[in-house]
Design a protein around this nucleic acid. Structure first.
Lengths: 250, 250
DNA sequence: AGCACACTGTTTATCTTGTACACAGATCAT
DNA sequence: ATGATCTGTGTACAAGATAAACAGTGTGCT
C-alpha cells in the first residue's frame, strides 16, 4: 500500500484528509468516484446545521446524497474521520485580515470571525478530536493568526502560545454563550441553583447570581457585538500587548 | 409526582443531581437502595480513568458494581445523566485557597488545581454538556473562584467574565497539552503538516513549525510547572489586573 | 396486625447504529 | 485484450442504550 509510505505527502493522515489537501492518489484505475470528500462534507455540515450532530448518521447522510450507506466508506474511513472532515469544512477558509490594521486589530478580526463560525455551527464543539487538527482550513486559520501576531516582537514560541490563548478564549466564550442562548436557559439555571444553594456555604455565587450578571442579556447570544466578548478578549490582548512590549525577538 | 413541583429544592435537575446535593427524597417506602449515585460515580470515574470514556458502558459499569445493567437506571436517568454526574465527581471538591495570598495568587492556585484535575481525568473534555453545569462540586469551584476575584474592585459582572476567561484558558491549554502528550504526537503532527504544506501559501506556520515551538517539550505534559501554562495565564491575569485597577465597584 | 402502595433490582426484548465482508461491474496499465 | 484495481451495493452482524413488565420488600396507615 503506497498509502503508508512515510515519505509521501500527507503520510499518516486519513485518505479523506489527504484528498482535502488536494493531493492526488497514486493508482488511478477503476471507475471514477461519483462523489468527493468535499461534497460529502458540505452535505454533512448542512445536515448537522439543520438537525444537529446526532442526526448525522452514516445512513441519513448517504440517503441525502442518494447513495447507499456503505458507499461513504469509500471516501471516509469511519464516522470519526467524517466528523473531523466536517469540522474543517465548517470553520471554512480563514478570513482575509485587513492589512491596514495593526496586529491587535487583526487579531480582533480573527477572533470575531472565529466566533461567528462557531455560532453558525455549534455542533463543532461536540466533535471530539483526539489529535491536533490537520485540515487545510484549520491550518489556514493558524496561518492567518500567526501572521498577525508575527507583526509583534514576539518570538515563534510566544506567537504560538498567544494564538492558542486567544483561540481558547473564543471557544470557551462562545460555548458558554451557546448554552445560555436557549431562551430561558439562564433563568432556569439560576433558579435551579438558588433552590439548592446553601447561602452560608456559597455566599459569593449567590451574590453574582443575584447581581443578574448571568441573566439572559449579559452573556450575549450574538458573536462579536457582545460586550462580554469584547471585554474578555481585551483582557487577553492587553496581556499579549504587555509581553510584546518588553520582549526581544528571539 | 412531587419530583416535578417547581418550587421544591432541586427542581428541574435530574434525580441524580438532586441526590448529589444531599436533598432527601419524599416518599421513603420500599427497599433501601443498595447503591448510591456517588458510589456509582466513583466507580465510573475509576473505569474512565483506567480504560477511557468509551469503556464506560452501562453494562460494563453495572457489572463492575456487581449489579445488572438496568439497575443503574434506578439511580441515573440516562447515560448522559451519568456522564454529567461523573464530571462533577471527577473535578472533585474545590481547593481551599491560601488566605494569605492576594487574589492573583489565589487565582493562580485555582487555575493550577483545575488543570491538575483535568490532567488526572482527561476524558472530562469528551463529555458534552448541553446546559450550564449544576453539580455541587462544579458550583463549589465557581464559589472559590468568585470569592478570590471578589477581593478585587471588580463588579459581579466582571468577576463572572474574568473567571470564565481563566477557566476557558485552563481548559483549552490542558486540552491541547493532552493532545501533544501522547509520545511522538507533536513530531508526527509536525511531519504531517510539513509533508503537505505549501511553503509559499503558508509561510508563517512553517516558521513556527521550524522554530520547534510546538515540539515535544514546549507544550508541557505537566500541569502547573509548565512555563507555557504560566505564560498564558499571566497574560490573562495581567489583563484582569489592569481592568481591576481602573474599575469602580458597581 | 394487616394491607396497599411505593420502591427496589431483574429479566427480556427491541431499536438504532456503525461497520466488516464479499460481490458485480467499470476502467485503465501493460 | 486482460487482469489488477477501484467503484458502489447488499447482506449481516455486533455493540449498546433503554423501554416494559415483573416479583420481591419494606413503610405508613388503618
Amino acid at each position: 500500500m503506497s498509502d503508508d509510505r512515510p515519505d509521501v505527502a500527507g503520510a499518516g493522515m486519513s485518505r479523506a484528509m489527504r484528498q482535502l489537501w488536494g493531493r492526488r492518489e497514486d493508482g488511478r484505475r477503476g471507475p471514477k468516484p461519483a462523489m468527493s470528500v468535499r461534497a460529502i462534507a458540505v452535505e454533512a455540515v448542512a445536515l448537522a446545521d439543520a438537525e444537529g450532530l446526532d442526526a448525522v448518521t452514516m445512513a441519513a447522510l448517504a440517503s441525502r446524497l442518494g447513495f447507499t450507506t456503505m458507499s461513504l466508506y469509500r471516501y471516509v474511513e469511519s464516522r470519526q474521520d467524517l466528523l473531523e472532515v466536517m469540522v474543517d469544512e465548517a470553520v471554512g477558509p480563514p478570513p482575509t485580515l485587513n492589512r491596514r490594521r495593526g496586529w491587535r486589530g487583526q487579531i480582533e478580526e480573527w477572533a470575531g470571525a472565529e466566533a461567528a463560525q462557531f455560532f453558525a455551527h455549534p455542533w463543532v464543539f461536540a466533535v471530539q478530536t483526539g489529535a491536533p487538527p490537520v485540515g487545510p482550513n484549520l491550518v489556514g486559520w493558524m496561518e492567518a493568526g500567526f501572521a498577525a501576531l508575527n507583526r509583534t516582537r514576539l518570538g515563534p514560541q510566544e506567537v504560538a502560545s498567544s494564538l492558542l490563548t486567544v483561540d481558547g478564549y473564543v471557544r470557551s466564550n462562545v460555548q458558554l454563550a451557546l448554552q445560555f442562548a436557549v431562551p430561558g436557559a439562564a433563568e432556569r439555571w439560576a433558579t435551579q441553583l438558588r433552590s439548592v444553594l446553601d447561602p452560608d456555604a456559597m455566599p459569593t455565587v449567590r451574590i453574582v447570581l443575584d447581581s443578574g450578571a448571568l441573566e439572559d442579556g449579559s452573556v450575549s447570544t450574538e458573536p462579536e457585538e457582545s460586550a462580554e466578548f469584547g471585554f474578555g478578549l481585551g483582557l487577553v490582548l492587553d496581556g499579549i500587548e504587555r509581553i510584546a512590549a518588553r520582549t526581544q525577538r528571539h
